Amino acid sequence: MAPTYLPILKSLTSEYEASKHMDVAHAAAIHPLFDVPVISENRQKAKKYQNSPTPKCDYLDEVAESVAKYWKGPLVLADAFNWAPDATVETGEHALAYLHASLKGQGVTVAPVVGYDRWDDQIYQLAMRGLDLSDAPYVCLRLEASAIEDAAEPDVFHDRIHEILEDMQLVPAGCAVLLDLGDLTSKSLMDITGDATRVLELLIEYGFRYIATAGSSMPKSVDLAVKKKDSTAKVIRKEMLLWQALRTEFSGISLVFGDYGVRGPGSNDAIRNPNANAKIRYTCDKAFLVSRGHSVVGGWALQMSAVATEIVNSKEFLPGFSWGDQVIADCSNGLPVKNGHGKWIAYDTSHHLAFVVAEVQEFERVLTLATRATTA
């Protein structure tokens, strides 16, 4: 079975907290790709890492424990795109191989991710070939920038796909493909659609388990989304417009929607900035409604009620829809809520995950009705 939704989520506390409060039915429809960030400087300074002879192993074990503890769905995908392709842990084992083993050791059903763009690295190749796939639900091929470029020369593209499949002894029916378009903020919808269409036309002949498209229209900082402080604006989710157009055009394949949650691949949220602005990124129909406050130097509580009220008073707000929605409503009413950048990412992500599942399911329902009407 293909998932309803494939979000690419950072393996950080905010995403875990959102996962903890997710409805079980929503989690069952999602195959999240947890992308493990490199170890931050703040984390490296923690005593348990400074005093450990194996901080990388400890960090990846901590990621695996958190995923096992909080994710309620049937499986996860796991990757570490921002690590060097040849990254190893202290034992000499490849970082991704160690992560997969640690997740499995925690009882997590994990679908390995293989990077098209990283396949040129010999260490990476050896590590991927050596993965134990005996109980993997499937393998996901992650196609990024170089794959999109190669698609302009079909022979080059097909050679690489065949090489990965043959070297890892995979059959397409046991594989999914993720077309990861990354940061979409500076790209036109026409160009994005052209790139995705070209790749999909080359992939159709393989018979992959499913193909997912993913990208993010959310800028890396709130001032790029909402120019004025203490105001709101909408950011169009080009990734959803893209998927809906492709889903209609390529109706004969299993095409899954994917995105980067509420913070894109270039997000600054992991960097502590005391002068950052308070904000809520509220997912709505094909857009994000972004409510921007001002610098949090004076404290969160002084302004978050007003920021939340902008969302609650909008026609897009869905009372009681998710844990995140309830927190936003409580905050707008002056009730005490836990504040901080990470907390609001968690609340925003909670609403986002629930909303996207419902949004995709509704589009599929309408598309099915339209298809039946035209064939009747």
Rank of each mutant, 00 (worst) to 15 (best):
244 Q>W: 06
9 L>E: 03
274 P>W: 07
204 I>F: 02
120 D>F: 12
210 Y>A: 03
196 A>S: 04
361 Q>N: 15
77 L>S: 12
234 K>G: 01
51 N>Y: 07
137 P>W: 09
289 L>I: 02
96 L>K: 11
329 A>P: 00
46 A>H: 12
116 Y>S: 05
40 S>C: 05
258 G>A: 04
168 M>P: 10
155 D>M: 12
89 V>M: 05
57 C>W: 02
32 P>M: 06
173 A>P: 01
142 R>T: 06
74 P>I: 09
264 G>P: 07
372 R>W: 13
302 L>V: 09
70 Y>F: 15
348 D>T: 03
267 S>L: 06
74 P>Y: 08
163 E>V: 03
122 Q>V: 14
374 T>V: 11
325 D>F: 08
39 I>S: 02
51 N>M: 08
67 V>S: 03
192 I>A: 00
270 A>M: 10
285 D>I: 09
115 G>H: 15
65 E>M: 05
236 I>V: 15
283 T>Y: 02
47 K>F: 11
164 I>C: 02
37 P>Q: 11
331 C>P: 04
112 P>D: 03
223 D>F: 05
336 P>K: 07
62 E>G: 04
47 K>T: 09
10 K>T: 10
329 A>F: 06
23 D>F: 05
59 Y>D: 08
165 L>Y: 11
286 K>P: 00
7 P>E: 07
112 P>F: 02
359 E>T: 04
117 D>S: 05
253 I>W: 08
335 L>E: 15
118 R>K: 15
103 L>Q: 05
48 K>D: 13
60 L>M: 10
334 G>Y: 08
284 C>N: 09
367 L>E: 15
348 D>F: 00
202 L>I: 02
318 L>A: 14
75 L>G: 06
308 A>Y: 11
44 Q>S: 15
18 A>D: 03
110 V>F: 03
258 G>V: 02
166 E>Y: 11
195 D>F: 00
149 E>M: 10
58 D>T: 08
348 D>E: 07
213 T>N: 07
19 S>M: 12
165 L>H: 11
358 A>S: 13
76 V>C: 08
202 L>T: 01
230 D>S: 10
285 D>V: 08
136 A>Y: 09
169 Q>R: 13
329 A>Y: 08
216 S>L: 08
157 F>D: 03
229 K>G: 13
375 T>H: 13
243 W>V: 09
337 V>K: 00
154 P>Y: 01
85 P>F: 12
323 W>K: 06
102 S>P: 05
188 S>L: 06
51 N>F: 06
106 Q>C: 13
